[in-house]
Simulated assay, not measured.
Amino acid sequence: MKSAIILPVLLGIMFASPPALAQRQPVCEPTAETHAVRILGEGPAGDLTDQEFPQVYGDRDFYRTLENGWVFALKRRENGWSVRLYEHAPIGNAVDLTSLTPPHGNTPNPRDIFGWHFRNAANTGPNVGDVNAPQNLRAFIISPALQGTGGFRPSTNPNTSRHAPPNPDDGIGWLNVIDYGLSGNSLKAGQQARMNYLKFDACVSWQRSTNEKTAWKDARSFDYLPEEHETFGGCGVDLSSLDLKASFLPRILGGDLDGDGAIDEVAQIQRKSDSKRGIALCRAGTHPTVIGIENGIGTDLPADLVGQIEAWHWITPNGKRPFGYTGIDLPDSDGDILILERIEKQAVTLFWKDGQLRSKELFHIVTE
C-alpha cells in the first residue's frame, strides 16, 4: 500500500482509543511499491528472530540496524522511550528520519512512549480518555529525503518554517505496544508514571526507487531473462535439450560456491523430451554441471530427489540463515552452501570441498 494512502489513515487513528487501535493495526508486508521491515526480537540464543517480540527495559536504549544501514532506535527518556530512525549509526551527525512526525509543540508526539500516557490524569488508574495522549499504536513519518540535509527539508513556502510538512513520498512506521511495566515509585497520585519495561511490535516502510521496483518484480517472476539464457548457454549448458524453467522462486541463485572468488550460479532446468527437472550449476561462467537429469551428487542427493525440490537457499557458512535452520550444523565447505529443500520433509546441502562437489543431508522427516 502506498504511503500516500496509509499516511492519513494512520495519523487519523494515532489518538484513537485502545480497542480501535487493536482492530486497525496495519500489516508489515513489502510490496512492489514499498519496502517493509519488521523490527525483530531476540531468540533464546540471542539470534534475531521474527518469532519473538523485541523488548527493552530499565535505563537501556534499544538499537536495531536495518539492511540498508538505517538504525531503528528507542532512546531512553525520563518517563519511557522515544522512537528514532537514524540515517546511519547514531554517532556524530546522524539525522533522525522521523523528525517531521506531527504534532510539534506541547501536544504528545506518537514517537514518545511514556508511562503517563497510559494513566488517568490523577495517576490513580488506567487512562480512560481524560489524558489526551497516544495509546498502544504509534504511527510515525519516515522522510528519506532528510538524509544529508542536517535534518531539515526546505519548504517552497517562505511563510512556513524550515520543517516542511510531510508529503506522499514519505514512508510510514508504526509501533504497537504489546506489554509494558511501570515503576512502582511513579504510581503515586499526582505524579507522572514512568515506564520501565516495553515489549512491542514495530515496522518501518518506505518507497522503493524505480530500480528497486523493477528488481522486486523481476525477483518474483518465473520467467528467465534473455541474459540468463545467455549466461548458462555460454557456460556450456545444452539449451537445445534443456529449458531454463523454474518451479519455485527465486528462479536463480548465486555466490561463491567453490571459494575461488568468482561468481557461481544455479538455475532450475527441465529436459525438453520428458519434462524431467534438474539444476544447472555454472561456476565462474565457464564450468557447467547438470544435476538431477541423469546424475545426482554423492549418496545424499540422488538424481530423483532433485526433481522433488520445492525451495532452495544460498547462504554463506557464517552468514544469515533462513528460518528453521538456526542451530543445525552445516558441513565444512570451501565456499558458500546451497540448501535444497522438500518443505518440512527433507533438506540436503550442496557444497564444494577439496576440489569436489559434495552433498550432505541435514534432515529427513519420514511420514507414513
Rank of each mutant, 00 (worst) to 15 (best):
Y180I: 04
S240W: 06
N176Q: 14
E212L: 01
V237H: 06
N167L: 10
N211Q: 13
A193Q: 10
S241N: 15
D169F: 00
E230N: 05
E228A: 10
W216Q: 08
W206Y: 15
G236W: 14
R208L: 04
A189M: 12
D218M: 11
C203S: 07
N185I: 07
A219Y: 02
A193G: 13
G173D: 09
L182M: 07
L242D: 02
S186K: 00
V237C: 04
E228H: 09
I172H: 00
A215R: 12
L175M: 14
P165D: 10
Q192Y: 14
D223C: 00
D238Q: 14
Y180G: 02
G184H: 06
Q192K: 15
L239E: 13
C203Y: 13
P168F: 04
K188S: 09
S240Y: 09
F222A: 03
Y180P: 07
Q191L: 14
G184T: 08
S241Q: 15
P226W: 00
W216T: 04
R208Q: 05
R220N: 11
V237A: 05
L242Q: 09
K188H: 08
T214D: 13
L225W: 01
K217A: 13
C235E: 06
A202K: 10
L239S: 13
C203H: 08
G171H: 03
E212S: 00
G234V: 12
S240G: 11
S183M: 12
A219C: 03
M195D: 10
G236E: 10
S209F: 03
G184A: 11
W174C: 04
F222C: 01
I178F: 04
F200I: 11
F222N: 03
D238M: 13
W174N: 06
L175Y: 13
R220K: 07
Y224F: 15
L239T: 13
S209A: 01
D170N: 07
M195N: 09
G190H: 11
W174A: 04
A215D: 10
S186A: 03
G173H: 13
A193S: 15
G181H: 05
D170P: 02
D243Y: 13
F232T: 11
N185P: 00
K213G: 11
C203W: 12
G171R: 02
S186N: 02
M195P: 10
G236S: 08
R220Y: 05
K199H: 08
S221F: 07
D201K: 11
